[in-house]
Structure formats: C-alpha cells, structure tokens
Design a protein around this nucleic acid. Structure first.
Length: 435
DNA sequence: CTCGCAATAT
DNA sequence: TATATTGCGA
C-alpha cells in the first residue's frame, strides 16, 4: 500500500468558501504532489464526499465559526464515511475543537495554516490503514506532536530542530523529503490581492498594526510573521518617503511665488481625508517650475486653490479637473505613441501636443502607496481616454485645462475620470509564491 | 517573546 | 528589484 512515492498522489478534497484561501490551500497541497479536488460551495462538498468514497483519501473542510449547517452536515456523514476529515477554522476555542472532534473529524487545524500542517495530513490516512495492520514505523512518520490540535496556535520555530535532534533516523529522511518539496523556502510574491489584504489589515488595525496582528488578520495560508514584518518594513519606508516628499513639496510650494503645488503619487496629504485617489498624467514640454521628479516619474500639478484637496470628494473631483500632470519619460512617450497610432489613428504629430490622461481611483478610504497610479499606456484602462477631447491645443498650460473643462460636462468628465486601475493579473500558479 | 530597524543576502 | 534573513536594542 505504501509505495515509495507515498504520500504523493494523496487524493484530497478541499472545501473553503473563500476562493482565495481555497486556491492557496490547493496550491500548497499540490506542492506536496497531492491530488487536489477543490470546491467552494458547502452543499457540493457534502455531496462529493459521501458519493465518492473511493475518490478521496482525505477531506479538508474550512468551517467558519458560525457554519452551523456545515457542522450538521459533517456530523451526519463523518461517522458514516471512511474518509478522514480535517477541519480548518480560525476558532481556537477548546469548545469548538471538542465539538468537531466529538462528531468524528480526525483533526482540527487552527488558522493560519502552515504548509507544514498540510504536508502532514497524510498521517491520518496512514493511521486509518494501521487499523487493520500494525505498522510500527509509521508511527514516527505520523507523530501526534506535530500539527494536530493546539499546534497551530503554539508556533515554536525550534520544534523541527528539536525533533530532529531527538530522532536522527526519521529526521534524516524527513529532512530530505522536506528539502525536496516542502520546506524549500518560497519567496512570497506580494501580488495585488496580498497587498490588498495587507493594507486592509493595516487599516483595520490602525496603530495596532504590528506584524503578528496583521498576519492574523490577513489569514493567509502559509504566510509567516517574518513575511509580514518584511513587507511592513518596506511599506513603512514607502510611507515615510512619501511623507518627506510631501513636506518638501509643501515647503517648495510655500516658497514659490507662483503658488503651484507639486504632487505625485507620494502626496499622501493630497489624498488623505478623501476616499478618492487619483493621479494624472500628461505628456508635454512644460516650464521647469511645474516639473517635479518623483520616483523616476516626472509630474507636475497645477492647482489654483491649494487647500481644498482634502475637504471632500467633490472638491477633490474639482481638483482633478484642474490637475495636470506631465510625464516626460521617453518610454512613456513611445508607449503613448504606439497606443494612439494603434487605437486612435492619430498622427504622431499629436505627440508634440499635450495629451492629458487622468485616472481617479476609488479605493476605499485609503492611500495605496504600492499601487501604481501612473498607469502604463498599454494597459486596457487607457482605453477610457477615448472620450477625452483630442482637440487640445498645445497652447498654454492653463489653456489646456480650460479646454478640458469646457469640453467635458461634469458627468462625462467623471465617467471619463473613473478608470478602474488594473494591474496585470498573476496566474494562479504565480499568485502567491514564486516557483 | 515581539517589534522595529538597518544591514546584508539571495 | 523585491523579498528574506539576521542581528541588536528596546
């Protein structure tokens, strides 16, 4: 029964209502060469389980605290079917554990789940097989001390080391296996979703936002406190950078006779207090005083009234109308060139004219420093600029602004401005961990 | 033990 | 470049 490859190919049914969690679980299980079947709908899972007794070796079921229906269903089938069932829950209460174990599930994992927890699920299958046959050595491969109830809450980074010291034989095997497929440290890819979870957690926790709590709040399988700490460090550095940049901007602004305000994506004050985030782009040759370099992107904002950005969405919108940001990066110019030649049939001569592209992002009440308000011109979102008047004349800076204001009735302008930001989506394979 | 930070490694 | 790791003081 136990082939040399065991537990590769272990057939696992995974249920989680949260699709992202589900995929994360799937990914990690597949890393161990398990054969994974996923489903995110409770009734479906419960149907799959009893009807496919020979299709799965084990089932993992995520159960919300309040999932009384799932509890009922599982309690009905757990005693009837032969498949070990593992519950995943964020509820770390003793009572919850007792409730589930009592109805016959074989294990209970408390979120957040480590990949290690998932790797060892095969022990329950082994244990089941042992009921008929006595296999002494398997006991070591399926140590109770690892990954069962309680383990998930008490994270001892030295546990592995200790157990290795205790039992050299098992550990050498273990380690080899681990090196091959499991403990190989993976680099976390902070994609859009992860960043969102992170930022949501940080926002929710406010001043309490420390790595541990953020991690708990994010509730992402496999993510470690260190991962979060590292990201948090970067995140804070960005915020500081932006803050400093902002202060500089304001100083320059105060000192400037023209009274211009400079802003880039780093102008958090610019955004704060509004639930709208926006950026503008412009391509042009513009007078020096309007150019400000921020993170390699040259931007400038001309605003007549310096202080109403933060007051409300409405004033913010009005400011968008008044905001022009110039981007003089050559690459951007050529991107823009290809965009217009491909999509608009515009002559390249337009490139010598200022072309304004403005995005306005509704992203909750928050600044997203990691996103890229400066969209690249080959992304689909730019297509929204079709409605922008192409008749802008390359006259003066303010003339353009007025042209745009006149050409767009406010409703149209808003629609034109509201461009959903899109970042290239990672495939599921690459979603969370790098290969 | 956790946090935050900086330096350093990958 | 982005993320991980490490070391150290708080």
């Amino acid at each position: 029964m136990l082939t040399g490859m065991f537990p590769e190919g272990l057939r696992v049914l995974v249920f989680d209502e949260d699709l992202q969690n589900l995929h994360s679980l799937e990914k990690h299980l597949q890393d161990f060469r398990y054969e994974v079947t996923t489903c995110h709908e409770g009734a479906e899972a419960m149907r799959l389980l009893p009807n496919h007794l020979n299709k799965f070796d084990i089932a993992i079921v995520e159960a919300q605290n309040s999932a009384a229906d799932i509890f009922r269903l599982i309690s009905e089938i757990a005693s009837e079917i032969d498949v070990p069932i593992i519950i995943i829950s964020k509820d770390d209460s003793v009572q919850s554990v007792i409730n589930w174990i009592k109805i016959g599930v074989c294990d209970y994992l408390i979120k957040p789940i480590r990949p290690e927890d998932l790797r060892l699920i095969f022990k329950h299958v082994v244990k089941k097989m042992r009921v008929g046959r006595m296999v002494e050595s398997e006991d070591k491969a399926a140590p109770e001390k690892s990954s069962s109830v309680g383990d998930s809450t008490i994270r001892n980074p030295n546990k592995r080391t200790r157990s290795m010291l205790i039992d050299g034989q098992v550990d050498e095997k273990d380690q080899d296996h681990v090196r091959d497929s499991t403990t190989k440290k993976r680099r976390v890819v902070w994609d859009k979703d992860l960043k969102k979870k992170f930022l949501d957690a940080v926002e929710y926790l406010g001043p309490e936002a420390v790595p541990k709590k953020i991690l708990e709040r994010m509730n992402v399988v496999g993510l470690t406190r260190e991962n979060v700490a590292s990201h948090l460090q970067k995140h804070r550095m960005l915020l500081n950078k932006q803050k400093n940049q902002n202060e500089k901007d304001e100083n320059r602004c105060l000192l400037s006779q023209q009274g211009g305000m400079y802003s880039g994506e780093g102008s958090s004050k610019f955004y704060r207090g509004s639930n709208i985030q926006f950026s503008t782009q412009h391509i042009s040759n513009i007078p020096q005083p309007f150019i400000h370099h921020h993170d390699g992107v040259s931007v400038a904002v001309s605003t007549r009234n310096l202080h109403h950005h933060q007051t409300s969405d409405f004033t913010c919108i009005k400011n968008v109308e008044e905001s022009l940001i110039y981007n003089e990066e050559d690459a951007e110019v050529s991107n823009l060139a290809s965009f217009f030649t491909q999509n608009e049939g515009m002559s390249l001569s337009h490139l010598h004219e200022p072309v304004m592209a403005t995005t306005m992002l509704s992203n909750g009440n928050q600044l997203f420093p990691n996103q890229q308000p400066m969209m690249s011109f080959h992304e689909p979102s730019i297509l929204h600029t079709h409605s922008f008047p192409s008749s802008l004349t390359p006259t003066s800076f303010l003339d353009q602004k007025e042209t745009s204001m006149m050409t767009n009735e406010s409703e149209g302008l808003q629609q034109w401005l509201l461009i959903e930001q899109e970042q290239p989506n990672l495939t599921d394979e690459n979603r969370f961990f790098e290969k």
